[in-house]
Design a protein around this nucleic acid. Structure first.
Length: 240
DNA sequence: GCGACAG
DNA sequence: ATCTTGTCGC
């Protein structure tokens, strides 16, 4: 698929906030997007290996047919990680490999699901929001742990599946704590761009099976990412 | 100095 | 994210 060619990820910390603030003005979280509108949905995730100077990232994009929930295509990218993880700037660490993997896709997914936040971010530019601009497609963020912004705590949803509580920061509802399975810890859903919060929540619930608290596409990418690392470590061992 | 901190 | 064994529970 075609990925926007503007390269926003020069590892220049002084530019990070400026880039986020510029893109944040273009976010659109007003569009409803139903599952019936989707032919394909992609899950994206990364795993890490190596250490220090040789830290390596393994990115996997798993594309599912939204109707049959069968994998229709996969794309991967492996590369050296140049940027350290700093809360609030996850995008700059992971997007280079995500873009590299996405470019290899033949299919253009109708929606991307990310492991991380969308607009539930200090500057509304979590990885799902940021990546959406480069992919040119709607994206939703699904985080496994809560990222507190502006001193805002989240309210625990009821124990039953499907329960959720809005996360409101300064009068603006940025995301939702969503119980994707009874009794398990909630996930934190926020639209990235090109989709609204209600649709994001409905899709995450609809795409989550009983085997995990995460949507199937994200879970698949997560598992695949560790398989990539195992295979890579094995071939490193055989031919140093 | 101390605690907090998506992945 | 990653480092790591067993263990409690359905």
């Amino acid at each position: 698929m075609q990925v926007n060619d503007i390269h926003p990820l020069r590892p220049d910390p002084a530019e990070f906030i400026r880039i986020q603030e510029r893109l944040a003005k273009q976010i659109d979280v007003s569009r409803p997007l139903r599952r019936e509108d989707l032919r394909t949905v992609a899950g994206v995730d990364l795993a890490y290996g190596g250490e220090g100077e040789s830290e390596t990232g393994f990115c996997h994009v798993a594309v599912f047919d939204a109707a049959t929930m069968q994998v229709v295509e996969r794309a991967e990218a492996i590369g050296k990680i140049e940027v350290p993880y700093v809360p609030g700037f996850l995008t700059f660490r992971e997007l280079p490999l995500i873009a590299a993997a996405a470019e290899k896709l033949e299919t253009v997914p109708d929606l991307f699901l990310f492991d991380g936040n969308g607009i539930l971010h200090p500057r509304r530019m979590g990885i799902a929001a940021h990546a959406s601009f480069f992919l040119g497609k709607p994206a939703v963020g699904v985080a496994k742990t809560y990222f507190k912004i502006a001193e805002t705590e989240y309210e625990e949803p009821e124990r039953e599946k499907g329960s959720c509580t809005d996360i409101k920061v300064g009068g603006e509802t940025l995301g939702r704590a969503v119980r994707t399975s009874a009794g398990v810890k909630p996930v934190f859903v926020s639209p990235g761009n090109g989709i609204n919060l209600d649709s994001s929540t409905e899709l995450v619930l609809s795409l989550t099976g009983p085997e995990s608290r995460l949507p199937v596409p994200v879970r698949e990418a997560d598992i695949s990412t560790r398989r990539m690392r195992r295979n890579w470590e094995e071939e490193q061992r055989l031919s140093p």
